[in-house]
């Protein structure tokens, strides 16, 4: 049975998306809707915006992100997510693995295409 694009995308997201969240947060704290838009609208990394929240809960449980409330000028207070030092370390470790991994995959896949 040939897997569909959705199935492949789901498998690729698994294990990488949480580091994408950490990557966005490495640029500065962000609130949920902002994260969802950056990962779901700007680039199609999220299957749907709602799937971000289980991921954030998992990251928080792991101690990789923490939250704090900040007042908003355009509505109710917002819950901001920020990277912890453990989260930063996890992101660095991932980046150390990711680049050679992508290079290896590209090399093999391109070889298969040609």
């Amino acid at each position: 049975m040939v897997p569909g694009e959705d199935e492949i995308a789901t498998n690729l997201r698994r294990g990488t998306l949480e580091f994408c969240v950490l990557g966005v947060l490495s640029e500065g704290p962000a609130y949920g809707l902002e994260l969802a838009r950056r990962l779901g609208t700007d680039v199609p990394l999220l299957a749907s915006e709602g799937t971000l929240y289980p991921l954030l809960a998992r990251l928080r449980r792991s101690g990789w992100v923490q939250t704090s409330w900040q007042e908003s000028s355009s509505g109710p207070p917002r819950r901001y997510y920020r990277l912890t030092s453990d989260g930063r370390a996890a992101l660095d470790t991932f980046l150390g693995v990711w680049s050679p991994f992508v290079a290896a995959v590209n090399q093999v896949v391109k070889g298969a295409v040609t």
């Binding site: 969802a36 915006e49 929240y53 809960a57 928080r60 355009s74 509505g75 109710p76």
Partner: peptide, 22 residues
């Protein structure tokens, strides 16, 4: 049996509030 069930529902609710704006 999802852990953090309350947290997820609350945060999705916050998402909706913010997305709808005021």
């Amino acid at each position: 049996g999802a852990p953090d069930r309350d947290q997820i529902v609350t945060q999705v609710g916050e998402h909706i509030t913010q997305a709808l704006g005021d």
